[in-house]
Every structure is written in structure tokens, then in C-alpha cells.
């Protein structure tokens, strides 16, 4: 869509665009190209000399079992977070959509955790699962289950998944509720007249009609689990114990800033960029399709 009526000015549009373009170039495009360039370099630890080595950084990365462990951890972490958060949010949204009295109160309370920073969400759950004084850790101990995420890798992963999913429920709830309210009531009434109960109506009408929203949310949640959860990992487990919660983003940070492996970290950044780009493309293709409906 284009405007028919526009202003004519030779230099003004460039002046208006300048701030954004300058920022974009200095802080986005230049660093990204640097990451691409550095991923082909081998630098010594002091940064004094560097050598162009083509794809060796990538070869090293892909022959490193630790990198595959990290990919594996990221996969489990994002799948679990997305599933847990989406299913609980959908349940609450379906229920909130049914409610007539008190709808606004439920909605406000269920949406505001969106404002809690991932790192803060991590700290809240860390406290509740703290082995010596956390309310949930002590409750588990009473039931005979020994909770110690500081030593147990699996438990640490469960902890960060719960914290990440908890923070994201609010976001998913808002979008599911908006999606539910767009479904025509007449369809559901027709099904009810034909004798379909609430459960059947949900699985045969509401859930399929909600699939565009669900698909959109899956992409957003995967992006969230891949990138925005850095704060949770860094604050709660620091990737440990024994790298059991080291997701890809944390590994880029850890190898680059703590391990000072610049080429390896840059190569990992490049791989992450490809992941973001493909997720963005998927999202945009899907949005184009949704417009046609």
C-alpha cells in the first residue's frame, strides 16, 4: 500500500531517516558483519595476531561434543518451556473466556507477570526451591524426595524450565484469550444445538480455529526460550551444574567473555543468527497466510 499524496523534498527524508540508519549501522549491521568475519579468524589469547582460517572454527565447533550437548539442552529446554507455558495458558484462557462474572479481575491478575523480568522470575523460583530454606524444596523433602538443584543437573533444568514457563504464561494467556474472543459464537452455539458437549466442542471447533494463534505463539515462545531466557540461566544456575543448563546463548557469552575464545564465540553467534533469521522468516510467511483468511 502506498500513499498517493506525498511531500516533495530532496534532503528532508534522508535527514529524518538518519538517526535510525546510523544507529542500525553502528550497532547492528557492523557488529553482525564483524561476528561473521571473526568466525573465520583464529586469534591468539592476547588479540595480537590473527589468521584467516576459513571454516575451521565451525569444524572445531561441530566436532565438539560439548556443543552438541548444548544444542541438546537448548532443545529440551525450549520444547519443555514452550509446552508447559502454552498448555497452562490455554487452559486459563479457555476458562477466562467462559467466565461472565469477575472476568476483568481474573484477566488483570493473570496478565501482569508479563512485567516481571526473566532474571527476577528466576530468582523468585530459586528462592522457593532453595534446598535449605525453600518452601517447595522442604515440602518435597517431607514427601521423601531429595531436592538439590545445585548438585543435580536434571533438577536444575526443571527449575529453569518452571521459571521460564511461569514468566511466559501471561503473554500466551493474552494472545489465546484474544484468539478465543475472535471465534464466532454462532459456530459454538450450532454445535451445542447438535448435541456436542463442552469437551467435544473444544477439540473439534475451538482448538482447530485457534491454530493460527497457537502456531504464532509456538514461534514466539521458541524465540523467547532461545534468547530472552539468558537472565534466568545466568542468575539461577550459571549454566551448571556440570553444564547441564548451558543453553546456546549462555555458551556464546561464556566462551566469549569468560573463556575468551573469540573465534569460537563468533562462530556460535553466526549459527544463532541463522536460527533467528529462519524463525523470523517462518513467522512472516505465516503472517502473510493469515492475512488471506
Amino acid at each position: 500500500m502506498e500513499k498517493r499524496s506525498t511531500f516533495n523534498n530532496l534532503w528532508l527524508p534522508y535527514l529524518l531517516l538518519a538517526p535510525q540508519i546510523i544507529i542500525t549501522f553502528i550497532f547492528f549491521i557492523w557488529p553482525a558483519s564483524q561476528a561473521l568475519y571473526q568466525s573465520f579468524l583464529l586469534e591468539d589469547a592476547f588479540g595480537l595476531s590473527s589468521e584467516f582460517i576459513w571454516f575451521e572454527n565451525f569444524e572445531v565447533l561441530f566436532s565438539d561434543p560439548l556443543y552438541f550437548d548444548s544444542i541438546n539442552t537448548t532443545f529440551i529446554f525450549s520444547a519443555a518451556t514452550t509446552f508447559l507455558s502454552l498448555s497452562t495458558a490455554l487452559l486459563f484462557a479457555v476458562m477466562a473466556d467462559r467466565v461472565i462474572r469477575g472476568e476483568m479481575a481474573y484477566k488483570t491478575i493473570l496478565t501482569w507477570p508479563y512485567a516481571v523480568a526473566p532474571a527476577v522470575a528466576g530468582v523468585l523460583w530459586l528462592f522457593m526451591f532453595s534446598p535449605s530454606n525453600g518452601i517447595l524444596a522442604l515440602a518435597l523433602k517431607d514427601w521423601g524426595y531429595d531436592w538439590n538443584h545445585i548438585l543435580q543437573g536434571g533438577q536444575a533444568l526443571v527449575l529453569v524450565v518452571i521459571a521460564a514457563a511461569w514468566k511466559q504464561i501471561a503473554y500466551n494467556f493474552i494472545f489465546f484469550l484474544a484468539g478465543l474472543q475472535m471465534i464466532p459464537k454462532s459456530l459454538i452455539e450450532a454445535a451445542a444445538i447438535d448435541g456436542a458437549g463442552p469437551a467435544k466442542r473444544f477439540w473439534t471447533i475451538i482448538f482447530p480455529l485457534l491454530s493460527p494463534t497457537t502456531f504464532f505463539l509456538i514461534v514466539v515462545n521458541v524465540v523467547y526460550a532461545f534468547f530472552d531466557t539468558f537472565g534466568i540461566i545466568h542468575a539461577v544456575t550459571q549454566g551448571g551444574p556440570y553444564k547441564s543448563t548451558e543453553i546456546l546463548v549462555y555458551k556464546v557469552y561464556n566462551d566469549g567473555f569468560i573463556g575468551l575464545d573469540l573465534g569460537g564465540s563468533a562462530a556460535q553467534s553466526v549459527i544463532l543468527m541463522f536460527i533467528v533469521i529462519s524463525l523470523t522468516v517462518i513467522q512472516f510467511r505465516y503472517i502473510e497466510r493469515r492475512v488471506k483468511y
Partner: peptide, 21 residues
């Protein structure tokens, strides 16, 4: 050019952006 920034969250370009700053 503006659209491309969508695809480059700070998490994937931390080291070089840090160098620039």
C-alpha cells in the same frame, strides 16, 4: 535495512557490539 534489525537481537552479536561500544 531497518527490517534486518529484527533478525539481530543483542544476544547474537554480543562480543562485536561490546567492542564497538
Amino acid at each position: 535495512m531497518i527490517f534486518v534489525t529484527l533478525m539481530l537481537p543483542v544476544e547474537v552479536r554480543i562480543l562485536p557490539t561490546y567492542e564497538v561500544v
